[in-house]
Structures are given as structure tokens and as C-alpha cells.
């Protein structure tokens, strides 16, 4: 079917732009079908489930379709600390990743330009951790900071930690893990925008008597803005929904649970599907709002 439409529309297309509409539709169809089947349908199902109520005559974890907006108020009141904590951690980890990645990307993309081999080697080093499952890497960090590790015992010895304080399970550890796991997502976009930075602009700036810091603020930073925006989006969004680093099985504990852990636990442990769905919809909505405000404020709508 699709091929036939494509063929007939294709032959006389040259002189008749009106027929190209069909071609466009035919070409778009697979993509649209994909979006419909794997994005819109689940999204619709998610919203429907988020409004369900427990079946009054049903057994454990049985729900009936309803229009219970109250589910949203319930999850907000119940899990507000987790929601705030998620965005707090996401913000902290994103800022940390930016602070660490910017000099790194600048060095690889600008300073190392005369040595392409070094550039490639360093890029490989940034990406190399991806070759190992990030679950394994996260578990390795847990082991490195475990209660009996030399790091923790030295911290005890020099008195930085009280004898019954430990590292794993603290907010520090979770933010550390989040930052570590998402640094490549920050470094790579920054690198691609800094790599294209025209050094003659910097020369022009200093010719006009701007100090190096002023050149950085007025020239380098604005020109690398697309990299910063895409880097922060690529880290902030997945971090806000991450549930591995903060989980008690990895770097977190019950005092560091993020919204992802709450959703996981509601879905898989206690089978409270409406609450889990409502939280998922909320997470999506909040991220959407935050991101659009952020993009608007930073004046880079063209990027989206």
C-alpha cells in the first residue's frame, strides 16, 4: 500500500507540487505511526490509569477507571519531599557536572587543537566508561566508599566523619554518583560547540582591550551557549527521573529516595498504579514547564 502511493506520487511529482503532499504523508507515516503507537497511546494509558480508583469489591491492587483528580493532590501531599529532593539533587548534580565539564571540554576543544591525536584520545577517555554497564560502575563506587573501605576509615581517623557516620546512603554520595554518571552527557555537547569556536573572535576581543575574563564572558560563553543549554538539558532531565543512584541497593538509602524510587516502589512493590502514574505525569509536566521556562529565559528557542 505505502509503496504504491509512493510510486504513483513520485512519477509526476516534478511539475505538480500539489501531489507532493501525498509523498510527504507517505514518508511521514512510519514516524507518525511510531509516535502514535509508542508515545501517544502509552501516554494516554498513563493518564487514564493515573485517574483510577481502587475497586471497592476488588482484591489486592485492583483498580477501576474513574476520574479521580484527587490522586494528584494525594501524591503531591504524600511525596512533596521526594519531588523537591529530586529537583534539588538534579540541580546540584547538573551544576557540578557543568563546572567540571566546561574546563575539560574547553581544554579538549580549544587548547588541544594543535594535537588532534591528544584530542581524540581525551574524547575517547570521556566516552570510555560507557563501554561498561553503568550499574556496574555505580556498584563499584559503592564498594569504594563502603563502610570498611580505606577511604571511610581514613575519614574516621582524621575526624572528618564521626565514628558512626558513613558515606554510602548520604545525599553527598547520591549527588556524587549522579554527577559522575552524567558528566559525559555534559562534556560532549560542550565539546561540539567549543570545538567550532573561532579563535579569531577571541583575538579581536583582546585587540579591543578586553581582559581575558571579559573575553570569556562576552565572547566564549555566549558562543558556547548552545552547548551549555543542550548539555544541561541532557543531564537535568534524566537525573530528575533517575532511580538507580538514589536507590538503597546502590548509593542511596531511605533518606535519599527520589521521585523515580517512589514511582518504582509504587509500581513494582505495592502495585499502587494510580499513584505511580500520577507521579509520572507530574514529573513529566514539571520537567516540561521547567525546561520551557529555562529555554525561553536563555533565549535559545531556536535550539528546540
Amino acid at each position: 500500500m505505502a509503496f504504491a502511493a509512493f510510486g504513483s506520487a513520485n512519477a509526476p511529482a516534478a511539475g505538480k507540487p500539489t501531489r507532493s503532499g501525498k509523498v510527504v504523508i507517505a514518508l511521514l507515516a512510519p514516524g507518525l505511526a511510531y509516535l502514535g503507537a509508542f508515545f501517544l497511546t502509552p501516554l494516554f494509558a498513563l493518564i487514564m490509569v493515573s485517574l483510577e480508583v481502587p475497586d471497592p469489591n476488588g482484591g489486592y491492587a485492583e483498580y477501576v477507571p474513574a476520574f479521580e483528580i484527587g490522586n494528584y493532590f494525594y501524591v503531591i501531599s504524600e511525596y512533596l519531599p521526594h519531588i523537591l529532593r529530586s529537583f534539588g539533587y538534579a540541580l546540584a548534580a547538573t551544576v557540578l557536572a557543568l563546572v567540571i565539564s566546561y574546563p575539560l571540554a574547553y581544554f579538549i576543544g580549544v587548547k588541544a587543537r594543535p594535537w588532534p591525536l591528544l584530542q581524540k584520545l581525551m574524547l575517547t577517555l570521556v566516552i570510555a566508561p560507557f563501554f561498561i554497564s553503568f550499574l556496574l560502575r555505580t556498584l563499584a563506587w559503592k564498594q569504594i566508599f563502603s563502610n570498611e573501605s580505606w577511604i571511610v576509615s581514613s575519614l574516621h581517623d582524621i575526624g572528618l566523619l564521626a565514628p558512626t557516620q558513613y558515606v554510602v546512603g548520604t545525599p553527598f554520595m547520591v549527588i556524587f554518583g549522579l554527577t559522575y554518571n552524567f558528566i559525559p552527557f555534559m562534556t560532549l555537547p560542550l565539546y561540539t560547540s567549543l570545538e567550532r569556536l573561532d579563535l579569531r573572535y577571541l583575538e579581536a576581543g583582546s585587540d579591543l582591550y578586553a581582559s581575558p575574563s571579559k573575553v570569556f564572558r562576552k565572547v566564549t560563553l555566549p558562543l558556547s551557549m548552545p552547548g551549555i543549554i543542550s548539555g544541561t538539558l541532557l543531564t537535568f532531565i534524566p537525573i530528575a527521573g533517575d532511580y538507580i543512584n538514589a536507590s538503597g541497593d546502590f548509593l542511596g538509602s531511605s533518606s535519599t529516595s527520589m521521585i523515580g524510587n517512589v514511582i518504582e516502589s509504587n509500581y513494582l512493590q505495592i502495585n499502587d498504579y494510580p499513584s505511580a502514574s500520577a507521579l509520572s505525569v507530574l514529573l513529566m509536566g514539571v520537567i516540561l514547564v521547567l525546561v520551557s521556562v529555562y529555554v525561553k529565559k536563555s533565549g535559545t528557542e531556536d535550539l528546540l
Binding site: S253, S257, N261, S265, N266, Q269, I270
Partner: peptide
Amino acid sequence: FQQIKLGA
């Protein structure tokens, strides 16, 4: 019990 696991 789940609320304990998730903390406040």
C-alpha cells in the same frame, strides 16, 4: 511499610 523504605 513502603513509606519507611522511601523515607520522608
